[in-house]
Design a protein around this nucleic acid. Structure first.
Ligand SMILES: [Mn+2]
Ligand SMILES: [Mn+2]
Ligand SMILES: [Mn+2]
Ligand SMILES: [Mn+2]
Lengths: 221, 221
DNA sequence: TTAAATTATTAGTATAGACTAAAAATTAAA
DNA sequence: TTTAATTTTTAGTCTATACTAATAATTTAA
């Protein structure tokens, strides 16, 4: 049985690994910073997780999830996203409030609970942030999405997900009226700073930074 | 912020205290046995809870909840019973499956969550076991007391007190395993002599006389 | 290719919550 | 009212998860 802390390490590893391009591994400092602990603490945990065959790791090397570790992580992510969907759809939580509570709910141990919950929610495919929900067998549905910054002038797409899930970003999106499914058209690109002029749901134009565009994933028709 | 463990102590104290008649306090052994720890462990926790002004306690004395401790305990019980109701009503858990999962869910920290959940469930008054659900302000709804003989077939209630306090009656109750708080369900009424077929704590059926039923007070939800 | 900077590990310490064994206080019996 | 039994507390230990400070390995720069 995994502890609350062990589960958070696995989930962090999944997150960091899915974000890095070619490599699928993380360094001690990177993990420690992400989890808000000191590197020495992370080192200790790496040893324990290795002992449990959940990660591949050796001193002074990078760490990565084993198959069994990855499956565990995906099942926690599944719970996280199902709970977020529940909070958003059934309890009227707003888009940017669900994450914090889901961080706690994802650690509830009951396979029956998560499967009943999924059924209750009618087998949703995406959470309120547009992220895909792993299946009960630990499989993650594949999504063909790209970041807004990859679109060319004149192209239109629909918001699929966010990369950055910080409150600051989510609140900014809220202010702009951008949700999952919102249509965005690139009106103009500004080579000078990489910023974009966009139309939100065919409304008036708006300039957004390159940083913004890189953190917004879209589905292109 | 209370830890998971501290919360369990408060809840246990509430449970034990509500079951004993005049006194509203518990001994170290009693608490330790209830929580499945050794007495030495309980002693340590008592000191900590006293430090936080959640209990009244001094060495070699009994322990009881302070007002603030009681309110905390009631708010945990509120979460427990609301989650049990959710699992039972919305996720099709059976009566005897809800408790274990609610033991975990009751520790989720979010006032907004519990209040939204209560709203989602339409402000239920009782959990699936027929126990009353404390309100958001920490108040426990008062239960109406009546004699067992006033219950109708199918109704369930909890033993609140006895009318007849004779040794004969009390010994009979003891033999039947009936205490304050024991759950009694009326399975069948016998119009012929006013006797009742009852289930004691969901155990096998038993016939009791009208005289018996008239002398046992129960709380009905 | 040596030196400096970065990154990661060890060693030792702390706290929460558990345990066992021994001692102390209280309560019940003789 | 002594003695015996029971209850409770103390003292010392353990594990999980943190921390700091010191050390070691790796990587980058000169
Ligand atoms: Mn989230
Ligand atoms: Mn999400
Ligand atoms: Mn319960
Ligand atoms: Mn209940």
């Amino acid at each position: 049985m995994l502890s609350y802390t062990e589960e958070n390490y696995l989930k962090a590893l999944l997150k960091i690994c899915s974000q890095c391009e070619g490599r699928a591994e993380a360094g001690t400092n990177e993990m420690a910073a992400y989890l808000g602990v000191k590197p020495a603490t992370a080192t200790d945990m790496f040893k324990k997780l290795k002992e449990k065959s959940l990660v591949s790791y050796q001193r002074y090397g990078k760490i990565s999830l084993t198959e069994i570790g990855k499956k565990n992580a995906l099942l926690i992510l599944r719970k996280h996203r199902l709970w977020e969907t529940f909070l958003y759809q059934k309890l009227d939580f707003s888009w940017d409030e669900v994450h914090e509570v889901a961080e706690q709910l994802e650690h509830i141990k009951s396979e029956k609970l998560v499967n009943k919950l999924e059924n209750f929610l009618n087998y949703p495919e995406f959470d309120p942030h547009g992220d895909p929900i792993p299946k009960a067998n630990g499989e993650m549905p594949e999504l063909s999405t790209r970041s807004l910054s990859e679109l060319k002038t004149g192209e239109t797409a629909r918001v699929a997900a966010v990369k950055d899930t910080s409150v600051l970003f989510l609140q900014y999106l809220k202010k702009l009226g951008i949700n999952i499914g919102t249509q965005i058209t690139v009106l103009e690109t500004v080579p000078f700073d990489g910023s974009l002029q966009i139309a939100i749901d065919q409304q008036e134009a708006r300039n957004v930074s390159m940083k913004f565009a890189e953190n917004l994933f879209v589905h292109k028709p």
